[in-house]
Design a protein around this nucleic acid. Structure first.
Lengths: 404, 404
DNA sequence: ATGTATTCGTTCACGCGCTGAACTAATGCA
DNA sequence: TGCATTAGTTCAGCGCGTGAACGAATACAT
């Protein structure tokens, strides 16, 4: 039940119906491939005759290919199977972290063709400069008709994932505390140097996009979920009905700086007891040392020691888990997502996190459904950030057309 | 950029384009009435010829009427002006509160034709019984071809606004703490007795719906906002891009039970320091008494005394305002709404609330845009709950058709 | 008073795209 | 070999946006 925005709407034209149905078909093939035209018609509850021109367009465009026919178990003509062609289009994926920047090339199916990691330059201009040198070198090897491996690939653009707040529309980095950058026009600077379109997004949203666009629906459990990234900072990417929740000025999801305990530890943002100050990696390390743990460089180290039986480490992580769970409970009360993904180094100790998180959820939420919200660890957030960068580029290909 | 849900989608048919454009026209007329076909064509950037059949359908259906022509300031044929006909359809609006239940009849423009208030019965069955008696008596006077005032009106259904958590889809009241009701199939019970469709929603969402559907866009400041209801309980209705955010199991917006201060006062839900426990009416009264204020029955009384110069009352309300502001800051960080409406008895003392709320927002949020989020008092929340009940019934008439 | 420019609303031929019936192709089974 | 069954295509029909053309209504200049 959506109200039409009378200051920003899209009228339907002659081709709108076709645009809508074409995307439905594309997504159905993506989800159920390999699949026949007849099966698509049944799922869409339309006549088979509609599928003929729709599929023809997708095949002509190169988005879909006819696979072999299936050994039919029943009588009748064997169906012609269809599948999406994800290896035709590739995207440059750039994941900027505090220490290292990953540059990768991946196709729209999320398969990484090449990857390299370099230290993150200290300034935005140095970053752009570095990328302007390395990215073309990377793409030259895999893109174009004369790629060494013979595959003919098209470069669709670049996705840039940043640790910090980003205004997706203007392409500006509003504030990246871990890098110390503020109000930088990074997207356009890079786009100008590379000569093609660049899309920018923050890390938790990118991870959420990777889940949304590059994972079959059957595995994601719905189109409403939250991706919580726990590392130095704590950020959230919220997805509601298949769409990222961005907020009026593109800063929705800054749950990391919701103050959950006024008497808690101070946060980098100036307040006390922010979620990030309670369960971010800095907080975990500080608590570990306060408990008398031997000097540790990183949360990964604490996790290793916990698994090796270090009591202080176990207690520390258990306590962090409770703080994580309380924040998740707040998020569940506010958003009621269908599922929560948790990413970050600390999730390597999921067997220690699982219990306290669930306990906090049960204690702090109001309905049985909310208490039962699945919380799933993301074992490989670095990978998801890279895939998120790909999703930034690939999403428009698969997204529903805007109507109304 | 929405992903198509492959398990729940709508294919476009021959009539989809028309359906979409008809609703766009209807909404444009609603927003800009009186308006001519030519002006509509310009705003939609389509040919004037399209408006002829579109408007004809709306006029035939009775949704739109041709008004008089305008005294044209410029040359040429005078435009035929169009306006929506909101007085044709009426809705029964039922607002259930802890003490009193309001039954009203209003047209789709939000104009109340009749209204009565009765004590709220103690049980769901008694409520349904009471409504089954009174509602038909009310509608008989104003609905049908032989209404006493001669207007021919159609009853479109009933809207039921409840204090508590509601699953809109199943129509069940999940939990209404102030009434002590749990898991009641209220919507269907009432629908069966009344013999027509009943839609149910909780109070804050209803107020948000009233803002969204029954106020011109020009006055609402966007399609993304939050309505915060502060009375005995604290609830929030969230609207994102013209659509209410409901969450996976229809419990999104339960911000009242986000714990903002672990060492705060106990809450009815069992936790400590929930937003509701910090700034709900009960918390305000308790704090007033702790400050040595004379016994007071209600927050309205405290507000009156504050305005009369009672120092303890002023301090109490100022402190409540700070708690309100901190909760709003959390909400702004999480959702980043374009505007926040605040409803509740305490808003009568807005001149005392304004400052501390803004101060807390400035202190507790991260970006200038977030700090500048407009916070607007709703002077008449009782009215908005009733209008919200109307909006529940009226919304499908004006909503964008689901596509994709 | 008359002619002209201008704006509004409608009509109509055209083309895009869904719809359902009819048809061809391919296959398994009696 | 014939028949039933399933897949995919073709085609006439119809809904609906599109743009050109046309009539209606009005202000202004002459």
């Amino acid at each position: 039940m959506r109200k039409i925005n009378t200051r920003n709407f899209r009228v339907a034209t002659r081709s709108t119906t076709r645009d809508v149905n074409r995307q439905i078909v594309l997504n159905l093939i993506r989800e159920h491939q390999p699949i026949s035209r007849a099966e698509l018609a049944r799922r869409m509850e339309v006549s088979r005759s509609l599928l003929t021109p729709l599929v023809r367009e997708l095949v002509t465009r190169g988005a879909v290919v006819e696979g072999g026919t299936l050994r039919a178990p029943q009588r009748g003509r064997r169906p012609t199977l269809l599948r999406v062609r994800t290896n035709r289009h590739v995207a440059v994926a750039i994941d900027v972290r505090q220490q290292r920047t990953t540059i990768a090339l991946a196709d729209f199916g999320g398969h990484v063709l090449a990857r390299e990691a370099v230290p993150t330059p200290g300034t935005p201009t140095a970053l752009v400069e570095m990328l302007a040198q390395r990215v073309p070198a990377l793409t030259a090897l895999h893109v174009g008709a004369d790629a060494p491996d013979g595959e003919e690939r098209t470069l669709a653009g670049a996705g840039l994932v940043m640790p910090g707040m980003v205004d997706r529309r203007t392409g500006r980095v509003l504030y990246a505390p871990r890098l110390g950058w503020r109000d930088v026009d990074l997207r356009d600077l890079l786009a100008e140097r590379l000569g093609y379109k660049v899309r920018i997004e923050n890390a938790p949203i990118a991870c959420a996009l990777a889940r949304l666009w590059l994972t079959p629906d059957g595995l994601t459990g719905g189109h409403s979920f939250a991706y919580v990234s726990i590392s130095d900072g704590v950020g959230v990417g919220l997805v509601n009905r298949g769409e990222v929740l961005r907020g009026e000025t593109h800063t929705a999801g800054e749950f990391g700086h919701v103050a959950l305990d006024r008497s808690g530890p101070p946060c980098v943002c100036g307040k006390r007891g922010c979620w990030e100050a309670l369960c971010g990696d800095g907080a975990t390390l500080a608590r570990y040392h306060a408990r008398g743990g031997a000097p540790a460089e990183s949360v990964e180290e604490v996790v290793r020691r916990a698994r090796a039986g270090d009591g202080a480490a176990v207690e520390t992580i258990t306590e962090t888990a409770t703080h994580i769970g309380r924040g998740l409970a707040a998020m569940v009360s506010a958003f009621n997502p269908g599922r929560i993904y948790v990413g970050g180094e600390i999730t390597a100790a999921w067997e220690l996190l699982d219990g306290p998180i669930r306990r906090a959820l049960v204690e702090d939420t109001l309905t049985d459904a909310a208490r039962a919200t699945p919380v799933v660890p993301d074992r490989n957030p670095a990978e998801y950030r890279v895939l998120g960068a790909v999703a930034l580029v690939a999403a428009p290909t698969y997204a529903a057309p805007r109507v109304g």
